[in-house]
Design a protein around this nucleic acid. Structure first.
Lengths: 335, 335
DNA sequence: CTGTTAGCGCGTTCAC
DNA sequence: GTGAACGCGCTAACAG
């Protein structure tokens, strides 16, 4: 039970323990091996009794860096796993006394970057907002670490992941019906989503690799009648298979197919991404690709920790790359 | 284009403008009416040329308060509107130079509170984590504003909102079929969700008010076969109407009903909450209650702004209360 | 060995 | 228009 109305400072602790602020600092920061156990005890006791918590402002000022790490997320819907990523990172960061905070991208990348500059966080973990080189410059200049550090490699990693996903989707689609024409279905949304466009390119690459021909790309709104309108033009000409940007799009396609009196997966086969729970409720259950976002989070955390250690000295291990599988197929009945 | 590698400080600006740091501070904080226009110009020019951004650490230290506001969210799934709330609050807060940051609740409320104490933010907006009085104490002690401030009124507000929602749900259910037995369907999830339990009580209150009898509460997992198992016991005895915790639960019920060969809404009528897009894709489209989360966010922001003004002097207008409608029915075909 | 003094880092504000 | 001091924690240098 605390009665004081103002947080205790290191001076308070020092006074109570009958030592100097310096001693308090030393003892409380591990550098206190040189003090007799008895003194250390007194200091720790005093700190505990006063509920002493060092002021982040003072600490940041002295250290020249804050202890806040920002997890920067695209405004686009990213749903459930978001919290998993945040939780995981938060735990990893707690180990070094940093604390995690989430921020959604603002209306434009430069707005976002400006807000971040004002915060002067220790680091920013960009989960796909894709700040441009110009946006990144003021941030790094002001001493903020940016993860991933290397924009080109990060892009390469994202592309690799896109390809992994697309391979699984196409695989499922051609296995279920070799003669299907293949389409990619992107999202139409007022929020800009950085992940949408790359996937279309992936379809081309993957098809190329398999020696088959991709038929094209469509944009599917999440509103039913619009989705019907989007689907209609491409379904007249035999069975088609659609690799969808995510499960929401996939379900919109399935719903549209239902409205058009088409059978799933015979006439229209669909594979989504994310393996959301609602997909399993559909009839037939949605076939989807599950992304191992936990290990992605772990890699980001690892990159972050080494970067903080090196403080930008050298380039760190890249988050996504490693050739390991980050995506897996969750079979359903829609492909 | 900046070349310097270290953020400019107010000293840098002062030097460049040929004035003192004091002057810089005054000019840049509006208190500069007393300076000749020419001086003000010089200072502003210098600041601009150096890309000067005041250090949050220094500022926090001097002001005795940071400029960070934390939006605290329950770990429970809250999906899409989350970002809307965050965006709205962020904009409102930008007006006073505060910046918003999101944080998910940790494993336990006390863990969460401890993390927040270490951050010493300007304020914490609790969107339903429900920190207990003991958890709140250290926070307010350390100078952090807690919104909502009054825990009992906040509870009352949430209850009022629950009742509003439930009234709409029950209204839709009895309109479509007066003889239906009424149930409330809650969520079963590993994450604890603070909003689930209150709604069951609301059903009783609302039914009481309407002079009808509620038949009970069920827990519906989001996994299909489990949902079927949960629904089965209550459907043998004529048509039922189910007020669901949210649209996810509602869709699980609809899917389970489909598996059981029941007709919607004849045998099983359902009303959800949240009006998610996927609900409109179902056949029939899900009837749902839409919550005006934007105005909730605005009220929270308003409460926050006055609280910052008063700095805890007096109690502020409560976020939810006002008797106005925060929920509305989105008709579909499921009730 | 045990502990202290002094001064930095940055912005704000009071008094002159 | 400025000097000085404050808020808080960190750390190099130094005295007992």
């Amino acid at each position: 039970m605390t009665t004081s109305t103002r947080p205790a400072t290191s001076s308070d602790v020092a006074r109570r323990a009958g030592v100097s602020r310096t001693t308090v600092s030393h003892v409380l920061n591990g550098q206190g091996e040189r003090f007799p156990e008895e003194t250390r005890q007194r200091v720790r006791m005093a700190a505990a009794e006063l509920d002493y918590v060092p002021s982040p402002a003072g600490r940041a000022l002295a250290n020249g860096r804050s202890d806040t790490v920002v997890l920067l997320l695209p405004s686009a819907i990213f749903a459930g796993n978001l919290q998993d990523v945040a939780d995981r990172l938060a735990v990893d960061l707690a180990a070094i006394g940093a604390n995690l905070v989430v921020r959604f991208a603002g209306p434009t990348p430069s707005t976002t970057a400006a807000a971040l500059v004002r915060m002067r966080p220790l680091a920013v973990v960009d989960m796909g907002v894709g700040l441009s080189a110009e946006d990144r410059a003021p941030l790094t200049t002001s001493g903020t670490l940016l993860i991933p550090q290397d924009i080109e490699s990060a892009d390469a990693d994202l592309t690799a992941l896109d390809d992994q996903i697309m391979e699984l989707q196409v695989g499922a689609l051609v296995t279920g019906g070799p003669s299907r024409r293949l389409y990619y279905a992107g999202l139409v949304d007022h929020r800009s989503d950085p992940f949408v466009s790359g996937r279309a390119a992936s379809l081309l690459r993957v098809c190329d690799k398999l020696g088959i021909v991709a038929s094209g790309t469509i944009s599917v709104p999440l509103e039913l009648s619009d989705a019907v309108a989007a689907l209609k033009p491409v379904v007249s000409g035999g069975p088609i298979g659609i690799a969808c940007y995510n499960d929401h799009v996939a379900l919109a396609v399935l719903a549209a197919a239902r409205e058009l009196g088409l059978r799933t997966p015979t006439d229209v086969a669909v594979v989504g991404v994310d393996a959301i729970e609602l997909g399993r409720l559909w009839s037939p259950p949605l076939t989807s690709v599950r992304i191992d976002i936990q290990s992605i989070a772990d890699r980001l955390a690892a990159a972050l920790l080494t970067a903080i250690g090196n403080r930008g000295t050298s380039t760190v291990a890249l988050p996504l790359r490693t050739g390991s599988r980050l995506a897996s197929l969750l079979p359903g009945g829609s492909a």
